[in-house]
Simulated assay, not measured.
Amino acid sequence: MTSIRSFLMLFVCAAGLQAQYTESDWEERDLWMKTDSLLSMTTVGVGDKVADIGCHEGYLSIHLAQKVMETGRVYAVDIREDRLQKLRANAHDRKLGNIITILGDTDNPKLPEGELDAVFIFDTYHEIDAHKEILQHVKKALKPGGQIMIMEKLKDWVRGKSRKEQVSSHSLGPKYVREELKQAGFTIVSEIEDHGDWERETNKQMWVILAKK
Rank of each mutant, 00 (worst) to 15 (best):
K153N: 11
V158P: 11
A89G: 01
I102H: 03
I79Q: 03
V77Y: 08
E127Q: 14
G160Y: 02
H63N: 13
S61M: 05
H131N: 12
M69K: 15
I102T: 04
L142M: 03
N90P: 06
G72W: 04
L96D: 08
Y59Q: 08
M69C: 14
I121G: 04
K110I: 05
D52T: 07
N108G: 05
R88Q: 15
K110A: 10
K161F: 08
E127N: 11
H56P: 04
R88E: 15
A130P: 00
R94T: 04
K143S: 08
T101N: 05
L154T: 12
Y59N: 09
Y125V: 05
M149V: 13
W157P: 07
I102D: 00
I134A: 06
R159D: 14
V68R: 10
V50K: 10
F120V: 03
D82A: 10
R94P: 12
R88W: 01
G104P: 04
G145E: 10
K95E: 15
R80D: 09
L116W: 11
E152V: 09
V68Q: 10
E113L: 14
H56Y: 12
D52F: 00
P112H: 11
G114C: 09
L111S: 02
D105H: 09
G160E: 08
D52Q: 05
H63K: 15
N90A: 04
L96R: 02
L87V: 04
D123M: 14
E152R: 05
E81R: 06
E57L: 10
A91S: 03
D129S: 12
I79K: 03
K132G: 02
R73C: 13
L103V: 04
D156C: 11
H131K: 13
R94V: 01
V74L: 02
A65Y: 03
P112L: 09
D78C: 05
D156H: 14
N108V: 04
K139N: 07
D123C: 08
D78P: 05
G114E: 14
F120S: 02
A141E: 05
L111R: 02
I128T: 04
Q136H: 13
K67T: 15
A118H: 09
R83Q: 11
H131E: 02
G146V: 07
I150M: 00
Y75E: 02
D117K: 13
I79P: 02
D156Q: 14
I121W: 00
Y125M: 12
K132C: 06
A118F: 09
I53H: 06
Q136W: 01
R80Q: 15
V68S: 11
G97M: 01
R73I: 12
L96S: 02
G114Y: 07
I79C: 10
R94H: 12
S162A: 12
A51M: 04
F120Q: 03
R159Q: 13
T124I: 00
M149G: 03
G146L: 08
Y59K: 09
K139V: 05
I102F: 01
A89F: 00
L84M: 01
G104D: 01
E57Q: 14
K110E: 10
V138G: 03
G145K: 12
H92N: 13
D156A: 15
E152I: 06
H63Q: 15
N98A: 12
A130H: 12
P144G: 08
R94D: 06
D123S: 10
V119Y: 06
